[in-house]
Amino acid sequence: MARIKESSTNYANKQALANECPEVYASNIIGGQWALAICCYLVNGKQRFGELKKCLPNITERMLTLQLRKLEESKVVKRTVYAEVPLRVEYELTPIGYELKTIIHALGKWGQKHKAL
Results as ranks from 00 to 15, higher is better:
107 L>F: 11
92 E>P: 04
31 G>I: 05
44 N>I: 15
89 V>D: 08
29 I>R: 06
74 S>D: 09
8 S>A: 01
3 R>C: 02
24 V>K: 10
55 C>M: 13
54 K>W: 03
41 Y>N: 14
30 I>C: 00
24 V>Q: 08
61 E>N: 15
68 L>C: 02
100 L>A: 10
83 A>W: 08
84 E>Q: 12
83 A>C: 05
82 Y>Q: 15
47 Q>S: 15
33 Q>F: 05
2 A>D: 02
11 Y>L: 00
3 R>S: 07
106 A>R: 12
111 G>W: 01
42 L>Q: 12
111 G>Q: 07
84 E>L: 13
117 L>C: 05
12 A>E: 03
45 G>S: 10
99 E>H: 10
31 G>F: 02
7 S>V: 01
31 G>W: 04
97 G>Y: 02
115 K>T: 12
24 V>D: 01
49 F>M: 11
76 V>T: 14
73 E>P: 01
112 Q>P: 02
59 I>E: 08
82 Y>H: 13
52 L>R: 09
46 K>F: 12
19 N>Y: 07
25 Y>N: 09
5 K>Q: 05
96 I>H: 13
50 G>H: 09
85 V>Q: 13
27 S>E: 10
24 V>H: 06
12 A>S: 01
17 L>C: 01
78 K>Y: 08
103 I>D: 03
76 V>F: 13
45 G>C: 11
113 K>Q: 14
48 R>K: 14
117 L>R: 12
53 K>Y: 14
104 I>G: 09
23 E>C: 00
35 A>T: 02
109 K>A: 14
6 E>L: 04
70 K>I: 05
76 V>K: 08
77 V>D: 08
66 L>K: 06
7 S>I: 02
69 R>C: 03
95 P>S: 14
100 L>C: 09
38 I>P: 02
60 T>Y: 04
115 K>Q: 13
100 L>N: 13
48 R>Y: 02
62 R>F: 09
33 Q>P: 07
39 C>S: 14
17 L>G: 00
60 T>A: 03
74 S>F: 01
81 V>H: 03
7 S>K: 04
42 L>M: 11
13 N>D: 00
38 I>L: 12
100 L>I: 07
21 C>D: 15
91 Y>A: 09
105 H>K: 13
85 V>L: 11
114 H>M: 10
91 Y>S: 10
72 E>P: 00
28 N>K: 08
17 L>A: 07
23 E>Y: 05
